[in-house]
């Protein structure tokens, strides 16, 4: 896609997201018209609407946007650095690492909310480093890396389950956390995690050329003067921070980090300066839309957003796997 069309695509998606945000805030168990919303913002509307907007829907909307874009950009970075289109933070165990850290945090320091995003980041980074070291040491193929990631994922989830069993106070939130969703967004976690996501996303956008050069492979990247080891490490650190902060807000939301980068690449191409902003916006769009459906279709009941995302993401992952094996067979023929 040409630069002009890519820029138009980003602008269009931004507009769509703005409209979706307005619809997201107005729709729900209590519908609030745009006019009432406007008055509520000015302070001369109904107090009930004001309360719903300020204490429930706006924080939830912010959580959706931040989590969606954080996971999407994290996925794009991981795929570029590992040069593996099948890698996503939920598939190679990064989200599970963050999840284990969050669960441990809630078991050991139940009232230290501000620590949660940073602990999640540490957990995500630990899992990411393990996978990365494995890939470098063994020169593992793309598929081996994914299978190793699935193993790490299971192991970390089992460890989180063990923590839930040992500290039964954490058991009440375990189910919702595992599925991923926004029904219990905690403002004390949202603020530090949101700031972390915004700062790290800005850093990734600034380093888009380095990220793009890395996709050319280690040998070519280093021959044009990129310090590959340093930047690979730095990007994995940033991706872990994004995944960790997102998990600390919404739990183990799956597939955003896989779906958003793939669809973005298909629409605006591989150039990171277009792909990254589009990917961040698309991740926000995906999560906003799924959460809107999750809380309105079955209202007043609510479906965890993670379930809807898995309904979308799992078939997409299968489609990618089958597409790859089909292409490989064609090549051999």
């Amino acid at each position: 896609m040409s630069r002009k069309y890519a820029a138009k695509g980003i602008f269009l998606l931004l507009l769509v997201n703005l409209l979706l945000c307005i619809f997201y805030v107005s729709a729900g168990a209590v519908n609030i018209s745009p006019a009432d919303m406007f008055h509520a913002f000015l302070g001369d509307g109904k107090a009930e609407y004001q309360n719903i907007l300020v204490h429930v829907r706006l924080p939830r909307m912010a959580a959706c946007v931040l989590t969606g874009s954080g996971l999407a950009v994290s996925g794009a970075v991981i795929q570029n650095v590992l040069q593996n289109p099948l890698a996503g933070p939920n598939i190679i165990g990064v989200n599970a690492g963050a999840g284990l850290a969050v669960v441990l945090c809630s078991a050991l320091f139940p009232y230290c909310y501000a620590v949660v995003p940073f602990a999640a980041f540490a957990g995500a980074f630990g899992a990411m480093l393990f996978i990365y070291a494995l890939a470098r040491k063994t020169g593992a193929s793309r598929m081996t890396l994914i299978m190793a990631g699935v193993c790490v994922n299971s192991l970390l989830n089992a460890m989180a389950d063990a923590v839930h069993i040992l500290w039964d106070d954490t058991l009440t939130s375990a189910y919702g956390f595992r599925l991923g969703g926004f029904s219990s967004v905690n403002g004390k976690v949202l603020l530090p995690a949101g700031i972390l996501i915004l700062l790290v996303t800005a850093a990734v956008f600034l380093l888009e050329k380095e990220l793009e050069v890395l996709t050319l492979g280690e040998t070519v990247a280093s021959s044009v003067g990129l310090h590959t080891t340093f930047f690979q490490f730095l990007f994995l650190l940033l991706a872990a921070a994004l995944a960790g902060a997102s998990v600390s807000i919404a739990g183990l939301l799956g597939f955003v980090g896989l779906l958003a980068p793939h669809i973005s690449r298909r629409i605006v191409g591989e150039e990171c300066r277009f792909m990254l902003p589009f990917c961040a916006l698309f991740g926000a769009f995906l999560v906003l839309l799924c959460d809107l459906l999750a809380r309105t279709v079955w209202a007043p009941y609510e479906m965890p957003t993670g379930i809807l995302l898995s309904f979308l993401g799992a078939p997409f992952f299968l489609h990618l796997l089958l597409g790859r094996s089909r292409r490989r067979r064609k090549k051999h023929d």
Partner: peptide, 26 residues
């Protein structure tokens, strides 16, 4: 000082122009 053309490389999905432009990265 040194430009290097390796024997085996990744199949980048970038456009030819963009990839060649990265030769100016230093």
């Amino acid at each position: 000082q040194i430009a290097y053309l390796p024997q085996s490389r990744n199949d980048a999905s970038l456009s030819v122009f963009r990839m060649v432009l990265h030769g100016r990265f230093p």
